[in-house]
Design a protein around this nucleic acid. Sequence first.
DNA 1: AATGATTTATTGGTCGGACCACCGGACCAA
DNA 2: TTGGTCCGGTGGTCCGACCAATAAATCATT
Lengths: 242, 242
Amino acid sequence: MTALMLTRPLLRSRLSGEIENILLKGIIKGQLAVGEKLPTERELARDLVVNRSTVREALGRLESLDLVEIRHGDGVYVKNYLESGNLELIRAMIRLDDRQRDDIIAALLEFRTIIGPEMAFRAAENRTEEHLVSLEEVIWKNEDLSILEKDIRVHHIIALAGANVLYLTLLNFFNKFVVEYGYLYFNDQENVKRSQRFHEEIYHAIRDRNAGLARKIMKDVLLYAQNVVVDTLQIGKKSNRR
Amino acid sequence: MTALMLTRPLLRSRLSGEIENILLKGIIKGQLAVGEKLPTERELARDLVVNRSTVREALGRLESLDLVEIRHGDGVYVKNYLESGNLELIRAMIRLDDRQRDDIIAALLEFRTIIGPEMAFRAAENRTEEHLVSLEEVIWKNEDLSILEKDIRVHHIIALAGANVLYLTLLNFFNKFVVEYGYLYFNDQENVKRSQRFHEEIYHAIRDRNAGLARKIMKDVLLYAQNVVVDTLQIGKKSNRR
DNA sequence: AATGATTTATTGGTCGGACCACCGGACCAA
DNA sequence: TTGGTCCGGTGGTCCGACCAATAAATCATT
């Protein structure tokens, strides 16, 4: 894997997707008040110069995100996105509102630092022989995996061993950011070495069912990563202000 | 609000919604393998005796849940739902597979018990005068609110004060279950009193910026609730086995 | 005048059929 | 082997029509 990933797939736009983004933005930015009734599908289609089916597909996806409520025979109503309980919204907030980006990423890292160690603790308690084999595969075999992929898989196996479906879900959520920005972290060879050391240490702790140690190891590495990224963001802020 | 919520809105079936559920179930239960190519929209429409538009709306929602990937000019492919990072899936798993229900709920309670106290800690550190006023409103004014609504609002304000968008999102997610099953907990008057005591104590801790105390208070109440519910689920299991 | 049943206009849900945009593979040519 | 072209199939959009549910207006009854 190249560091800069020059050839990334273009994101094809779908007409219904653009409409979805327009409304999504309107809701998150508060231009569409909570409880407000949207124009009818036919009106939206007319105003956007688009077919009603296309509008419907956009609205359907928005309802799937719990951003609107579609009432048959009545209309479409805006819901409070702050009460939606949908992770995808966090990604949308970052995508649509750059000002909040750094704060949100900081919050994610803080959260991960709190929950990750506890899951490592449980992983060390509950791990089976299969989990160990999987970890060995990733850490010592599979030479062709990048450090980023290795790291993601190690965390994934730990989440599986921790046996908490919510943590697994959150980890997958985090990983979407790791995949996107992780190469920045691993550009520093020092961090690569640190990560390799982490993989070996956490493996031994989990193998020995030393839950307390596993928790500490995880806590240290997550805290370190958190600090690195937050520092980077701070630098970004300063350089923007000069 | 009545305890049993006798008048809950009927869940009107949407044809596209039923199709969505069918495919959702197939994916979660593993009948549709990861990477597998689904039948074409036209085929699905023909087999299900339904219009293609209806199939499309169902597939679009599934893509919104990150369960399938729709490739223009190619086809629709099943994704690995265990890597989707979507909270809504957890709800779907509970809805579609009763066997996992208790385990998942136990995992959610465990998670909440880990993260809630830390957020209370941060809330005590970051709270503003406005947060205190909001808490006072809910706890001592607003006599007409049920204990369940009060509890939800108190936690919500704490999440706002904690200023972590991810925790706010998760809390909203948790609350969907609290709204659904919370009356069971509050049927016991002892738990109602315990909750009222909790509201007052956590308020004072947050007001005094006593972060450590706020964390302990939150931890105690969440641990207690966790134990109560898990015990209840255990009873359910036993009675099923008799 | 108040209440309850009924009608009506509006809105979302489904339909079928058409055409466009895109993809993958087959085929061909350099 | 490489690159270009063509072609069948697939998802994306469009059109116009009708079905089904809702809310508001209307009417009938008391």
